[in-house]
């Protein structure tokens, strides 16, 4: 069986309808477990005190803000190359989730930064590239809503997605590209280095990341189903208008 079979809206609705209840349960369980573990059962950090508990929100949200855009890029490329409507709709479906993850990363970052850096905001490479990513998410969502013809909207938003990918990559590697600013380098990748993340934080962090990934997958599936129905509704209304 080819993977492209799932690009058929009917097949996608069938399969996603079957897996969604299980995935939703698993996402709720993983996310709750990770966050309860991180909030209630992790020790204070010797440098950062109890603010270390923000790690379990900030890191997964920031990772998913970038990964959601990468997923949108892959779906947009599939639309541009193979013209599968489901992939264009999946990219559209992912955008609000990506926007929310970016907002969470920025808000928790500001709340964490204030006591640690003594400032809510700094025009630091990583923070600034995340702010630009947020604007790209808003622009992407607005562009989809502004264009009536769905195929034209899918084409133009795909182009915007490709341009925005530069900032998604910059958000990830900003700390490496510009060795300045307040924000530290990746937390997760420090394992195995001289200053690794302690296992007391690492394990619940991995559970939280899994929870955020599953939550994203559920949101994309549910929202893609909405846009598939909306597309059918548009076709029916056009048929009605033609008499």
């Amino acid at each position: 069986m080819s993977i492209w079979e799932y690009a058929n809206p009917k097949k996608f609705m069938q399969v996603s309808g079957r897996v969604l209840p299980w995935l939703t349960g698993l996402a709720a369980l993983t996310l709750s477990l990770g966050l309860v573990w991180g909030f209630f059962f992790t020790p204070e950090d010797y440098k950062q005190g109890s603010t270390v508990k923000i790690l379990f929100l900030h890191v997964p949200a920031a990772m998913m803000a970038i990964n959601a855009w990468v997923m949108m890029l892959v779906a947009s490329l599939i639309w541009v190359i193979r013209r599968h409507h489901v992939s264009a709709l999946a990219a559209r479906a992912a955008a609000p989730a990506g926007l929310v993850f970016t907002l969470i990363a920025l808000v928790t970052g500001a709340l964490w930064g204030q006591p640690m850096w003594n400032t809510w905001w700094e025009w630091d490479p990583r923070l600034t590239s995340f702010l630009i990513l947020l604007l790209f998410y808003l622009g992407y969502i607005a562009l989809w809503s502004a264009i009536e013809d769905p195929d034209t909207a899918a084409d133009l938003t795909s182009v915007l997605c490709m341009v925005g990918s530069v900032f998604a990559v910059l958000s990830r590697y900003a700390v490496k590209f510009w060795n300045q600013g307040l924000h530290q380098d990746s937390t997760i990748l420090k394992v195995g280095e001289s200053d690794p993340l302690d296992a007391a934080y690492y394990v619940p962090l991995v559970v939280c990341i899994a929870g955020f990934v599953l939550f994203f997958v559920v949101m994309v599936l549910v929202r893609t189903r909405i846009w598939i129905r909306a597309r059918r509704l548009g076709a029916l209304l056009a048929r009605e208008r033609m008499g």
């Binding site: 508990k53 923000i54 808000v107 709340l111």
Partner: peptide, 8 residues
């Protein structure tokens, strides 16, 4: 900071 982050 912590409760604000979780709440938001």
């Amino acid at each position: 900071a912590v409760l604000g982050s979780y709440g938001a």
